Amino acid sequence: MGKKSKAKREAKQALKAERQVSQSFKSLGVPSWLGDMLAMENIFNDLDTPRAITEQVSRFCSSISSETPFYIDSDPEPWSRDGCCDLNVMEFMKENGGRVLYGFRIWCNDVYIEAERHAIWNDGESFRDVSFVADGTVKVLFLPDVAEKQVDLTSNKLKIRKALNPKYEEFVATRSLIDVDLPPCSPEEAWNISQTYEQWQGRNLHKHSGRGSVV
């Protein structure tokens, strides 16, 4: 099957799924405009690491940073905290030196792509992602941010969103306007209340979750 045929088939499947969700909301008495909006929220589901750095993915990354994206495996320590990527790197640096490299994880599906801010470890030669993804993903596409953004995690935007299907462009642009950081939380508090990788492993010992690459 050619790329264009595959893209058309996937677009039809996405539209069908959206219509089904919208109809479900309508059957529950939800106003049509709200049902349509909630159905569109589906485009943020089933996000995954891009299977390859396609032209589409490359263009998106280039719009954010002049640095080159690269794949990196999740390789956390047992004490690594969920949602504390920068703190994980700083803790790792205590015994291993190196520095924090700030940037983004790239996630996508057939109709949407986003950059989620992230931080990994770098010693000038090698890289290590000492954090884990709570859904079990073990390989991510990491895009380093530009030099002037290598100050702290919050120098990066929380998320950068882009619709791959023109139909969703206005919705994604509107959704981007409400992306805000969570209320301030001290590093100590975040570290103390977040689950560790060891705890996560214990709870997910018999699960084999994770995102399936799509682009």
Rank of each mutant, 00 (worst) to 15 (best):
M1R: 13
M1W: 15
K4L: 07
K4E: 04
K4W: 00
S5N: 10
R9G: 04
K12W: 08
K12F: 11
A14Y: 05
A14L: 10
L15T: 07
L15W: 07
A17G: 11
R19D: 11
V21L: 15
V21A: 15
S22W: 15
Q23C: 12
L28F: 06
S32R: 12
S32T: 14
G35Q: 03
D36I: 12
M37P: 01
M40V: 06
E41M: 10
E41D: 14
E41L: 09
N42T: 03
N45E: 15
D46S: 04
D46F: 04
D48S: 13
D48H: 01
T49E: 01
T49F: 00
P50E: 03
P50F: 01
I53M: 08
V57L: 00
S58I: 06
S58Q: 15
F60P: 07
S62I: 09
S63E: 07
S63D: 11
S66G: 05
S66Y: 05
S66E: 06
T68H: 04
F70T: 06
F70I: 10
D73M: 07
S74I: 06
E77T: 07
W79G: 02
W79V: 07
W79I: 09
S80N: 01
G83T: 03
G83W: 01
C85Q: 03
C85E: 02
N88W: 02
N88C: 04
N88M: 01
N88F: 02
N88V: 01
M90Q: 12
K94E: 14
N96A: 03
G97Q: 06
G97D: 06
L101S: 06
L101H: 04
Y102T: 08
F104T: 00
R105T: 09
R105K: 11
I106C: 00
I106T: 01
N109Q: 01
N109D: 02
V111E: 11
V111I: 03
Y112C: 03
A115K: 05
A115S: 08
E116Q: 07
R117S: 07
I120F: 02
G124Y: 02
E125C: 12
S126E: 12
S126A: 15
R128C: 06
D129E: 02
D135L: 03
D135A: 05
G136F: 03
V138M: 14
L141I: 04
F142L: 00
F142E: 01
L143Q: 01
A147F: 03
K149R: 14
Q150M: 02
Q150N: 02
V151I: 12
D152R: 10
L153T: 07
K157N: 13
L158V: 13
R161F: 06
K162M: 09
A163E: 05
A163I: 05
L164F: 07
N165L: 10
Y168N: 02
V172K: 00
V172E: 05
A173V: 14
T174E: 13
S176I: 03
P183R: 06
P184M: 05
S186I: 00
S186L: 05
S186W: 00
E189W: 05
W191F: 12
W191K: 08
N192T: 04
I193F: 04
E198N: 08
Q201S: 02
Q201L: 15
R203H: 07
R203Q: 06
R203C: 10
K207E: 11
K207H: 13
H208R: 14
S209H: 10
S209E: 10
R211W: 00
R211F: 00
G212L: 14
G212R: 10
V215H: 12
